[in-house]
């Protein structure tokens, strides 16, 4: 074979130009075939997978973002509701407290009135009892005075007369006291 025979003899095989046509021919043929293979089969396949992945990731990220926004909105709504409820509860509590205070006041007043009535009644009873006692005392004193007069002056007088006199005396005494 002239190719290798020549190359072995003289220096670098690379400089043996008799091998160049074959190398160039097969380079052109195989590189063209390789280019078609890479351009039509290999790179589109890898590119498609990468593109699908990117689309899927973008899609998922979009979904996640939407979900996150939804969650934030729901949370805000919930917090607003919570605040409103808290305010309403405070209002209700205030009203209840005010009502209770009013009722308590009313009750106090009622009880105080009742007590005052009771006191007034008791005082009236007491006053009646006292005047009763006083009049009884007058009778006793009249009887005692009558007995003393009968014993001293030996005068017979009626109990009624004596009581009349005693009353007159008491009235006089009361007048004197008032003066």
């Amino acid at each position: 074979m002239p190719m290798s025979a020549k190359a072995a003899g003289a220096g670098l095989p690379q400089l043996d130009i008799s091998t160049w046509p074959s190398q160039l021919f097969w380079l052109v043929v195989l590189f063209t075939a390789g280019y078609i293979l890479m351009a039509k089969v290999v790179t589109p396949r890898i590119g498609t997978v990468l593109e699908e992945r990117r689309a899927k990731l973008d899609d998922d990220l979009g979904k996640a973002r939407t979900a996150s926004e939804d969650a934030a909105r729901i949370r805000a709504e919930y917090e607003a509701d919570l605040d409103a409820a808290r305010i309403a509860a405070a209002e209700t509590a205030k009203q209840a407290a005010a009502e209770a205070a009013k009722q308590a006041e009313a009750n106090d007043a009622k009880i105080a009135k009742k007590l005052a009535e009771k006191v007034a009644k008791a005082e009236a009873k007491l006053a009646a009892a006292r005047s009763d006692a006083m009049s009884n005392l007058n009778n006793v004193a009249a009887e005692a005075a009558l007995a003393a007069v009968v014993q001293l002056a030996d005068i017979k007088t009626t109990a009624a007369q004596a009581s009349k006199t005693a009353d007159k005396l008491v009235a006089a005494m009361a007048k004197q006291e008032a003066n």
Binding site: M1, P2, M3, S4, D16, T19, S22, Q23, W26
Partner: peptide, 22 residues
């Protein structure tokens, strides 16, 4: 670095053999 033909081929006076390089 020697080019060794594996399948001999020639066209129009040029040696276009399929070689170890090819």
């Amino acid at each position: 670095f020697e080019i060794k033909p594996l399948i001999e081929l020639s066209f129009g006076g040029y040696d276009l053999s399929f070689t170890n390089s090819s």
